[in-house]
């Protein structure tokens, strides 16, 4: 029993250290954000006169309302389309057992680890020729494609485990394939689709490379891409940069804290399947 207790204590201490190491950067960011704009504060020195106004300044400077709107629009473009399209494909490959499904599946799986840098150059010229360069579509459409391997993989994993009898009985009742999909399987897939939605939201929101390459105007980018531009414009002012970074982090953090259970589970499952 003694060993068990000692182990528990080491565990607790370790957890605390780990949490401190995780949080310390955020604390440093926060403290720095309170220093007078334009100064070069030391790492963790509490300012004599905390400048709470920096957050307001950064809010205006970063044009947060417009940024939020832009990111939300992009997420609204990527997530619903991806969900519908991937659920349909997952259903067909995993449940309908269409001919050639193994080939289709492998084709998608091969895209799972594709680095975005591998295709970002042609995507630029592709977007330009389609006339969507510097619009949000230039981020939305390629992202749907790039997330498709994982989304299909994820939904297939769900549909493979759905019992055949379910569909059999629906068919006996005269349901068409579409009705079978829409009325029976989509509602049952809710847990899988909602987890996928969380993952897609996060990945879209945080997408950086496509945002900086395909869209010049920070106000048409994702949050992450806008943060890059914010660094470009205000990187010369450390406290303001820190305040702005914290503001840009806040929406993700809020969503994460609200849905944290689902988030953690989804991400863990997500990586396991991926």
């Amino acid at each position: 029993m003694k060993t068990a207790r000692r182990e528990a204590w080491t565990g607790r201490v370790l957890l605390l250290v780990l949490m401190a190491a995780t949080l310390m950067p955020f604390v440093s960011l926060f403290v720095t954000a309170l220093h007078p704009s334009g100064s070069y504060p030391l790492g963790l020195d509490w300012p004599d006169d905390p400048q709470w106004g920096n957050f307001a300044t950064a809010f205006t400077a970063a044009r947060m309302t417009e940024l939020l709107k832009s990111s939300v629009l992009i997420v609204l473009g990527v997530v619903p389309i991806s969900l519908v399209v991937a659920t349909m494909a997952g259903f067909a490959i995993g449940h309908l057992r269409i001919p050639g499904r193994r080939f289709v599946f492998v084709a998608f799986v091969l895209g799972l680890t594709l680095p975005f840098e591998g295709i970002v150059t042609p995507l630029y010229y592709l977007a330009r020729d389609m006339g969507i360069l510097n619009t949000r579509w230039a981020i939305i459409l390629p992202l749907i494609g790039l997330f498709m391997p994982f989304s299909v993989f994820w939904m297939r994993a769900h549909f493979v485990n759905m019992p055949e009898e379910l569909s059999e009985s629906a068919r006996i009742d005269g349901a068409s394939t579409w009705q079978l999909f829409w009325k029976v399987h989509v509602p049952l897939a809710a847990p899988a689709t909602s987890s996928l939605a969380i993952l897609l939201f996060l990945w879209t929101w945080n997408q950086f490379l496509l945002a900086i390459v395909l869209v010049d105007d920070p106000l048409q980018r994702t949050m992450s891409g806008a943060l890059g531009a914010f660094q470009g414009q205000w990187g010369t002012d450390i406290p303001l940069l820190c305040a702005g970074s914290l503001l840009i982090l806040t929406p993700t953090l809020l969503v994460f804290l609200i849905f944290q259970r689902r988030f953690v589970t989804a991400l863990l499952q997500g990586s396991l399947k991926g």
């Binding site: 309908l96 989304s151 999909f181």
Partner: peptide, 27 residues
Amino acid sequence: RNWAGWLFVLPAAAFYVVFVIQPLAMT
């Protein structure tokens, strides 16, 4: 019916082909 199932895969395949496979070939 199974062949009809391909219609379900088509949209996903289109996005994948246009925005991943095609750029890959272009690279």
